[in-house]
């Protein structure tokens, strides 16, 4: 039950951060330094990666549980 709730929270966070990253990366590609002048995308990418790994671990546990 807790795993389900946690899983759905991390899933939503992961989706949200994915959309954030894609939108910001596209903006940066279109208009140089528009995003990177204010936001360090590396930190956002790191948080996104950590949430992705946690999500994978939770999903794996969910799959292996009887």
């Amino acid at each position: 039950m807790i795993n389900d709730k946690l899983g759905s929270i991390f899933k939503e966070l992961f989706y949200a951060l994915t959309v954030f990253l894609v939108v910001l990366a596209v903006l940066e590609l279109l208009f140089s330094r528009m995003v990177l002048a204010y936001i360090n995308l590396s930190y956002l990418l790191l948080v996104w990666l950590i949430i992705g790994i946690i999500l994978l671990v939770i999903s794996k546990k969910k799959l292996s549980s009887p």
Partner: peptide, 13 residues
């Protein structure tokens, strides 16, 4: 939040 962020970045640009 994302829309606001894009708006602010566009404003600053």
């Amino acid at each position: 939040a994302l829309t606001a962020m894009v708006f602010v970045l566009a404003w600053l640009k």
